[in-house]
Design a protein around this nucleic acid. Structure first.
Lengths: 249, 249
DNA sequence: CTGGGTAATTGACTTAGCTCAATTATTCGC
DNA sequence: GCGAATAATTGAGCTAAGTCAATTACCCAG
């Protein structure tokens, strides 16, 4: 079962030795330029930051960093998808977040003290990330204090969203947690229905929501049989979010 | 039962009309001066910020702000204790955090957009808070960009700690969640034992950990009968944290 | 210090969700 | 496109934890 198999067991490759090539080409960094952390940087500052960064290719299931490793870099996802997880004392693997292209992660390390990664990060499929030196970004902020504003507001948003994640987890039954999770995946929340794609394989969504994969599967089957959702692989169609909320009391 | 009684039902007093007196006296603000967000401010800047703030007295169970209220202030706890919680659609009250003297809260609102409180805040007992205008603090940061560093590193720490809170909640059984929670309350974590005081009444700790008060009580009784903890009101004595961790597999 | 209200505990019962196990899909490397 | 490995589903049984109810212990206001 995936949840009891640890990343330690799965991956013997050393961390952070993926093929990395200099970032001379300018393709596929448009998303970076529009990211909240970077969109206000002067072009020359951003270019310099990119020059000091490395593009990294990660294979399916490849580990990017380990919890407690000294954090010298933070990351921007160019393509693919990653997940953040922790291992507890008994080696159980707890998925805490998934990261999509266009997102940054471990950026909180820029100002953490000590700068140690708070979790593991691995690629869920073959992915490309930009590996940005913490030192370079900090120096940029120190030389240009006006840039701090964007970082502060980015961190504030992140804090609110983690707070919200915590709220879901205080919901005491598995079905209601799953329903809240699905509704948060909808682009407009409970406002209107639509199709959502699970950002993680089902067994990892289950782990994220503190339930067993079997329980996840049964709840989904039940919602489906009640006509509340339609399921197609990892894509779910929710026609009426309000009805979903209603059944969760 | 406390968990199903909503704050709305309990409190009819208007919010934010507690007696507030100007902060001319300088007593009991020592803790403020040593807080990470303020300790690097030049005395004249800090004094000006304090001048623009108001000291607020809150009675037992008094509501300070509501979720989604526009956030014009953030807060520093001078004395007493508060809790942060949310209400879900069915009116169930979910405790997410408790705030002790010397802590700031809602400070993330300084840079949130829109500036709306992400939760409710109420006093758990009679408390005094300093009510700091977001505008004043933002202006201070805008005029003195070098101050941003402290705010950034404070936010980074907060993010890591929320991430950790989330991790506890992915633990799938109530006993293990409670054990992890208790160990986090120990000053030195699992390193050495000691006495911890529950920061919330037991029924709210239960809510925070997504379990029923009855379950909380039974788990505590069981740990006690196994000699793993000693209980005295809201004070728990943990002699051997490693043994506790061991039984949580 | 006393009484009313809330919080905590304990018991009995029920059920959601976990575990184990077997089967069927799906995915990915070759 | 084939086959091995992983993921998802489904069933059966069991147990942790929820519910309801009654009792006892606290805590603050008066």
């Amino acid at each position: 079962m995936a949840m009891t198999q640890t990343a330690e067991q799965r991956y013997t490759k050393p961390v952070l030795v993926a093929i990395n090539k200099p970032l001379d080409e300018e393709d596929s960094l448009e998303a970076l330029r529009s990211h909240a952390l970077f969109c206000n940087l002067r072009p020359k500052d951003l270019d310099s930051l990119i020059q000091q960064s490395r593009r990294l290719r990660l294979g399916h299931h490849q580990l990017l960093y380990r919890q407690d490793m000294p954090a010298h870099h933070f990351f921007f996802v160019i393509s693919g998808r990653l997940r953040l997880y922790r291992l507890d004392s008994s080696g159980v693997d707890r998925t805490l977040d998934s990261i999509a292209p266009g997102d940054c992660f471990a950026e909180v390390m820029i100002y953490a003290n000590p700068p140690k990664y708070a979790c593991y990060a691995e690629a869920l499929k073959s992915s490309e990330v930009l590996m940005i030196p913490v030192k370079a970004y900090r120096e940029l902020l120190d030389r240009n204090p006006e840039y701090a504003q964007a970082a502060l507001s980015h961190y504030a948003m992140r804090a609110v969203s983690r707070f919200h994640d915590l709220e879901i987890m205080t919901v005491q039954n598995a079905r209601d947690r799953l329903i809240r999770y699905l509704i948060d995946l909808l682009p407009n929340g409970a406002e209107e229905g639509g199709e959502v794609e699970l950002p993680l394989p089902k067994c990892l969504v289950a782990s994220r929501l503190a339930m067993q994969p079997e329980t996840f599967s049964r709840i989904l089957a039940d919602l489906k049989s009640n006509g509340l959702i339609r399921v197609n692989r990892s894509k779910l169609f929710i026609s009426d979010p309000q009805r979903l909320i209603a059944i969760s009391q």
